[in-house]
Design a protein around this nucleic acid. Sequence first.
DNA 1: TATTATGCCTACCGTTTCTAGGTATCGACA
DNA 2: TGTCGATACCTAGAAACGGTAGGCATAATA
Lengths: 110, 110
Amino acid sequence: MAKDKADLLQGTLDMLILKSLSLGELHGYGIIQRIRQLSDEMLNVEQGSLYPALYRIEQKGWVSARWDVHDTGREAKFYKLTRLGRKQLETQEASWDRLVLAIAKVRQAT
Amino acid sequence: MAKDKADLLQGTLDMLILKSLSLGELHGYGIIQRIRQLSDEMLNVEQGSLYPALYRIEQKGWVSARWDVHDTGREAKFYKLTRLGRKQLETQEASWDRLVLAIAKVRQAT
DNA sequence: TATTATGCCTACCGTTTCTAGGTATCGACA
DNA sequence: TGTCGATACCTAGAAACGGTAGGCATAATA
């Protein structure tokens, strides 16, 4: 990965995927682009990370998938957040906030 | 771990250890206590995570260790941040800030 | 005296991300 | 027409890291 881009921390990818899907149905390749774009190029999800993650997430029932043809005429697998997935997103965001807060506390220490 | 405590994200432990040592020399067991205390009990580092991490960190030259006897008369292995470790702490804090920012950007998206 | 807290350690497990490969289609361009 | 990059999917294997679960020893405390 390019030097100016940070590797993800384990545990953050699910949240990012769920979040990007919360904005609307999307296919895998598009998820990568959306995350990169929304983060101002700071986050770059590798395909080898994404597709297995999508599989896991689908198994857990957080997203549903269907094949479809989009505007450009190409086939792609579109993922959609389920109700369970929306809940999971909230849970993960809350966990993330708690962690960020906890680490901030440690870092504040003088 | 207790349910109200979050597991750490992989990649954050080094920073927490370095940070707690930046406040002064400490032994392993004390690092765990300091992190727990500073985070208001939100972060609990397991011994099985800490000691291997300390070993890794020492190998990298970020901390130096020495056995000593402390007030209570007990022996303990005291760790101290090296100059390299202090630099590493800065680097990791900067990375953390970037990641938090990047994720915030993604989450802001409507 | 028995238990709890302090203090160190290791082996193994599970999860997750990345690297590195593969396949196929489409559009642009030489 | 041929080639190349972008789009789009996938898998196998490696690497990293934190946790669980165990062990050992000593000091404090009930």
